[in-house]
């Protein structure tokens, strides 16, 4: 498969990228790792006139911690996040980075590109929604930060304006004693998850002081499972309480029947994944090291 002809531009800086994209206008697309965009071009679902390659822009592939937040450059690949100390320190990040597709995709694909694809089956938007992340954008009108849940507006649609690009992601450093889990169910590595759940818990003993839950592949965008959170927040975690939260998450999900399964099957999976996620997060809160990621057929 071959893309329709396009012009290729390499941006040397954020400012240059913004200028190029702005000058070219509607027909331009920003290219990062290419793991979503190139696939669309090859089947000619999209035929841009120009690609602006961001990959060589310096300093957009760093991971920094400080001032109570973690900041990940937009061009950081899934593989480098998976290998980073961040994935050890905050295991939920490693759960996500390690579970995306296969080695080849992880080596090329970037966190910024993943978020910009606006695909509800992509893992990062759901994970980042769990961590209450901000998406840092820069465009002709300057810089802004948008909560990830607002950044992806609709199926395959983001708030990015003409000439605007994502430069990074940030989220508050999870409080000491809190922990999370990102768990998914999928067919095989090249496939998107059938369902996924991100869950971050702050516990005091068995009491849930705070919680944040997001659902992936469960609607047109990642879904912030507020009903499930309400079932857990401020309560002592018992099997009953957790079951109610799982049920609430499944009810709030809006899955669509496709080759990965029926609506009922997916709701049932979400119920399961919420329970699993709570289980893993609790053990991690207690200091245990637990390896999880996607479960395959």
């Amino acid at each position: 498969m071959y893309p329709a002809p396009f012009r290729y531009h390499r941006a040397g800086s954020v400012a240059e990228a913004i200028r190029m994209l702005g000058d070219i206008g509607e027909g331009a697309r920003a290219l990062a790792g290419g793991q979503s965009l190139l696939v669309l071009l090859k089947v000619r679902f999209d035929e841009p006139t120009d690609l602006v390659d961001l990959a060589r822009i310096p300093d957009l592939d760093t991971i920094d911690q400080g001032n109570g937040e973690i900041r990940i450059g937009a061009l950081t690949t899934h593989a480098s996040i998976a290998r980073s100390e961040l994935s050890t320190a905050i295991p939920i990040v490693g759960d996500c980075a390690n579970g995306i597709a296969d080695n080849q995709v992880r080596s090329r694909g970037t966190i910024g590109g993943n978020v910009c694809s606006g695909d509800p089956s992509c893992d990062w938007p759901t994970l980042l929604a769990t961590l209450d992340a901000q998406v840092h954008c820069e465009g002709p009108d300057g810089k802004r930060a948008v909560p990830v849940t607002e950044f992806v507006e609709d199926l395959y649609a983001t708030v990015l304006g003409q000439g605007e690009i994502v430069t990074g992601i940030s989220f508050p450093t999870p409080a000491v004693g809190s922990a999370g889990a990102y768990v998914g169910f999928k067919r095989c590595a090249p496939a998107y998850p059938t369902s996924s759940v991100g869950l971050q818990l702050a516990l005091n003993g068995d009491d849930c002081e705070d919680v944040r839950i997001a659902l992936g592949s469960s609607g047109l965008t990642s879904i912030h499972a507020t009903d499930a959170e309400a079932e857990l927040r401020g309560k002592t975690l018992t099997d009953d309480v957790i079951a109610k939260a799982a049920e609430a998450a499944a009810a709030q999900a809006e899955p669509i029947e496709d080759q990965r399964g029926s609506e009922d099957f997916k709701r049932s999976l979400i119920d399961t994944l919420v329970k699993r996620g709570v289980g893993v997060a609790r053990r991690r809160c207690a200091g245990e090291t637990v390896e999880v990621s996607h479960e395959y057929y």
Partner: peptide
């Protein structure tokens, strides 16, 4: 894992490896 599924109008719903999902080493 593998099934060629059509909808009632004759669209093949599993026409990529991401949808058809041939078995891999992890499975």
């Amino acid at each position: 894992m593998e099934s060629f599924d059509y909808d009632e109008t004759g669209n093949l719903l599993t026409s990529t490896f991401s949808d058809y999902c041939p078995i891999t080493s992890v499975n």
